[in-house]
């Protein structure tokens, strides 16, 4: 499957955004920062966006990606309502 081959690059993207939660970057910018081809990055950013890990803002060349924090329930118990804070 395609996704397995992309695993490494996907982790690379994930690492980048994880360690830089306030990074706002376009595909072109990421190409430069990661030193990876835009064509390789596209499907991965697509997929990370679909999973809700990244957030895309804007259209076209000026569209940029940023990390989206997961939902956190600070005091979870076996009975609590699962409405994220």
């Amino acid at each position: 499957m395609v996704k397995r081959e992309h695993l490494s690059l996907e982790m690379e993207c994930l690492t980048l955004f994880q360690s830089n939660p306030y990074l706002f970057e376009t595909i072109q910018g990421l190409e430069k920062r990661l030193g990876r081809k835009m064509s390789d990055l596209e499907p991965i950013l697509e997929s990370l966006t679909a999973q809700g890990i990244l957030q895309r803002t804007g259209e076209g060349a000026m569209a940029y990606f940023r990390y989206k924090e997961p939902a956190v329930i600070a005091e979870f118990s076996f009975t609590s309502e699962l409405e994220p804070l």
């Binding site: 939660p21 306030y22 706002f24 376009t26």
Partner: peptide
């Protein structure tokens, strides 16, 4: 300080920065 919402260290390309800076309600 970022966790306490007192600071942001923003990595951004200058072109998006300028684009967003001039957009109303931009980044």
């Amino acid at each position: 300080l970022e966790r306490k919402n007192r600071l942001r260290v923003i990595g951004i390309s200058p072109d998006i920065f300028l684009d967003q800076m001039t957009s109303k309600d931009g980044l």
